[in-house]
Amino acid sequence: MKEQLQMIADEAMAKMEEVQDIKSLEEIRVLFLGKKGKLTGILKGMGTLSAQERPIIGQMANDVRNRLEDAIQKTRSRLAKKEREERMARETIDVTMPGTVIPRGKKHPLTLVLDEIKEVFIGMGYEIAEGPEVELDYYNFEALNIPKNHPARDEQDTFYINDKVVLRTQTSSVQVRVMEKKKPPIKIICPGRVYRSDAVDATHSPVFSQVEGLVVDKGITMGDLIGTLQVFAKSLFGENTNIRLRPHHFPFTEPSAEVDVSCWSCGGKGCRICRNEGWIEILGSGMVHPKVLQNCGIDPKVYSGFAFGLGVERTAMGRFNIDDLRLLYENDIRFLKQF
């Protein structure tokens, strides 16, 4: 019987060496360990054994069973692994094929720039104010120290609705509306569309966007203006950006300054984009003119303030290297997709 057990074990082990799939392995298991299997068959013959032999053979049979079960288990995992690997090999895909896209639109480049500007100033404690585009002459001009027949009105080539109403030429009109309603401290930016009767070409548009900033409080200085613009320029054009202020004239600020940033393309060495100057003009600014404060019911002896304004189109064109302003209002999707 011993020999028989040994034979069964050897036979089973040999079959397991050769088995190729889990189904055949199962057949082997049934053949040897099943209810009608060979090992079971042998154990049924145990009754004929002597009491002395019985425990020895029983022990042996158990050992064989355990060995076989263990071997089946191992073979099974070997086969499973093999099958998994074969399956995975069949499943291999070309990962260089294009991905499945959930279509998403894109923001217009002007919005991208506007959003960045808003973020910078909100971070500095500003609020966003809005006002009408079709605006009273008073808010667009008179309150801003540009009375009727002032030469600055010519410079701005205004669209008129009638002699009291214009299309605003600057978002500064919103400043006045805010100052009339709100007491200092005031810290706002006013983004919005403005209008000037410039014929359409690569650098001009009769409709464009501006962001105006205004701070009014006790003890606001020109140094504060410069510091604020430095932070702004660095946030928008990069940490290495410098600014340069040049005296200029605006009727609603005094002192007034035009502000250049160091060229974003060449960093100030001079290139085609900055016309070899190393600097690019991006905004106008200054200390709020005492007359403007007065017009809004704010005492210029107690309060001072600064204001600045920049063209969004110009900034976007600089940021994205766009050479023709008309592209921004043409809305060719092949253009819009690039941002």
Binding site: I122, G125, I128, D217, D224, I226, R246
Partner: peptide, 21 residues
């Protein structure tokens, strides 16, 4: 020279909260 004016950032003023409506 405007550019010799020391840059400051609204020192000593009460801070305001920036937010969107």
């Amino acid at each position: 020279d405007y550019n010799n004016i020391p840059a400051t950032l609204l020192q000593g003023r009460a801070s305001t909260m920036g937010r969107k409506t």
